[in-house]
Design a protein around this nucleic acid. Structure first.
Lengths: 157, 157
DNA sequence: ACTTTGGTTCGGAACTAACCGAACTAAAAG
DNA sequence: CTTTTAGTTCGGTTAGTTCCGAACCAAAGT
């Protein structure tokens, strides 16, 4: 493997690891992002990343799991191989689902505040938490329309 | 420790772990979020979470590290103990620094696109990536003013 | 029917991270 | 100067993860 690619892929990998994936998963994503054409066979990935079939198999499946869907595969008639590629559709969807992320933090923080209020705990601190919550809520309220705005802008092009 | 709190704290912990902290760090944050008054001594945390002094020490220090600053401590004259609490100030700041997060993904994606263009790799895929990048850029552009808007709204209250 | 191909599953080795107890340090109290 | 208190550092254990090779399976080719 060429060196510039290698460095790149590791860089992508590091970023991906922070999203909670294994190093190899990250490298797979990296490889697919740099690939030309932008898809690779199972075998190709193995040799390209010099990783074992088992590891590749496991990590591909993780990346294709429900709720992850970072990659997908397609087949061509008269060819048994699978061709794996980044699922850009799901990537965009993931971005658009970003508010969902806020929703979780939001819920938890609400619960904490509720707990503190119910149990009459120190209220200055609770008030401060409420301020943070209000920020989450603000974002949660605004993000969808912001995303929508972007979509409209795209359509016009 | 009371049971409702325990469940709660674990729940907070799980969420925090996803941000890349250890379980114990998460539990410390949880404990401090529920505490009344909203601060605890070193010893208090140890017994409350039934964890060792060493672990607590390490994790407190991690949570106080530069670039993290999730918690802070204060002291009272004539008392050698430290009182630890959530640093709400830094928490808010962290939120406002959210665009920074986008910046990193953005940069990496730009690099990938640049690589693909330079090396004349399949351009349909590259174009699709550019679309995603444009979303990142859009967010990066809009988030600051959105955050600013919220701040103005807060001041008026 | 036998082989080849594409991929999965299983069991274990190597590594990593979290946590603990014990020994230690620094500073205040007596 | 001795003791106590508050917290840190060190070394080892345990738990969990990642990855590999080998065995395996299912479908297609011969």
């Amino acid at each position: 493997m060429e060196n510039r690619q290698k460095v790149f892929i590791e860089k992508i990998g590091v970023r991906t690891e922070k999203m909670g994936y294994s190093p190899l998963s990250g490298r797979i994503l990296g490889a697919l992002l740099l690939a030309d054409p932008p898809h690779m066979t199972f075998d190709h990935i193995c040799t390209y990343l010099s990783a074992s079939k088992s590891s590749i198999s496991n990590n591909l499946n993780i990346l294709m799991r429900d709720g992850v869907n970072m990659i997908e595969y397609f087949t061509v008639p008269g060819d048994r191989k699978r061709y794996f590629r980044i699922s850009l559709q799901n990537w965009s969807k993931h971005l658009k689902d970003m508010p969902q992320e806020f929703e979780y933090s939001n819920e938890l923080l609400s619960d904490i505040i509720e707990y503190r209020t119910e149990n009459k705990l120190e209220s200055k601190f609770t008030t401060d938490l409420e301020k943070i919550l209000s920020f989450y809520n603000f974002m949660l309220e605004r993000l969808p329309s912001l995303i929508n705005e972007w979509e409209q802008q795209q359509l016009k092009k």
